[in-house]
Design a protein around this nucleic acid. Structure first.
Lengths: 177, 177
DNA sequence: TATTGTTATACTCTATAACTATA
DNA sequence: TATAGTTATAGAGTATAACAATA
């Protein structure tokens, strides 16, 4: 439990971290946008998945994900084959071109970060990565009482209506205009 | 010096951290936008300053900053008094209303983070804050620092058109249309 | 001429709502 | 009726460029 000044400092750093994201997104190879790179990385890391699952990993609305996916598909980097088990869904999969682009992106990322983080120890890079992952988990499903950083089997995450918490709906409270 | 998988993991976390920022920005009091809150926090923390300095702290273009500042001023949270030393500039300063809003925001931030980070140790909060600050510093002005990671001969550092280097201009390379 | 700030315009990313097609 | 995905529209945030006023 930290004090207020510490929370404010964390808040400032969270606001400022966007500049790093923007800088990393400026010079992507192959006309690849920042989100496109993220989608390719997720598909490469987690394997084929449905739109809904991708939206969950991106932590954005499915409509947004759908648009991004359409863009990637138009570039020929992924394809959307119908899911035989549920014909409402489509399975996203990297094409060979998408995989090639991912390889290029991966090399580019490694080069850029190796340069910018040249003074960092292996240990500090790992520490920062872990703490950011834990931070994100701390902001997931706060109304269920579980401890996200304890090892939970994936799939037990969503249980709407379970938590007697005091903080209600995660969605935006309607426009104030 | 970390390996490629570690850099990729860091990249994924950097992409994903936006969800935390968005979540924190959803429920701001007083019709305060995310950027407005950041501006108020910076003025409260660092004191009165000019637009250019604020743009630097926000790590965005001055034109963007100017727009945000105009918005804050219209809300009555800051005022822009002319700088007697340089009449091109204006000094940004919190109004009493702005200070009141900042107090409210600060309390809100502390409450929210205390709840979401209830399982975190004081030490881990501090560690994450420090590592994020350091990450941001690692991405500032990389071309003026000139570390030995580049095999560039000395003297070709900031000379556009001098070397056939593949990693030059920090700015967006102009619209390709 | 260079610098500080402003405005106009365009682009990226996101959310809400209305829609379809399956389940 | 409920769910998976799509599309339309709106909003927030940013960058570039052209401009104004001052140094």
């Amino acid at each position: 439990m930290a004090d207020r000044a510490q929370y404010e400092e964390l808040m400032r750093q969270l606001s400022a971290i966007g500049s790093v994201r923007r800088e990393l997104g400026r010079i992507l190879p192959g006309g690849c946008s920042s989100v496109a790179a993220t989608v390719l990385a997720l598909l490469g890391h987690d394997g084929d998945m449905r739109i809904g699952r991708l939206a969950e990993l991106l932590a954005v609305d499915m409509s947004v994900t759908s648009r991004h996916v359409a863009h990637l598909a138009a570039r020929g980097w992924i394809d959307r084959s119908p899911d035989p088990a549920d014909r409402r869904s489509r399975i996203l999969r990297l094409t060979p071109e998408g995989r090639a682009m991912l390889t290029e992106l991966s090399a580019h990322t490694a080069r850029t970060l190796a340069r910018r983080l040249s003074g960092w120890s292996d240990e500090d890079v790992r520490r920062l990565t872990c703490l950011m992952a834990r931070l994100r988990e701390s902001f997931e499903d706060p109304w269920t009482g579980r401890e996200p950083w304890a090892e939970q089997p994936p799939g037990t995450a969503q249980d709407p209506g379970a938590g007697p918490s005091d903080e209600r709906p995660p969605r935006t409270p309607a426009v104030t205009t």
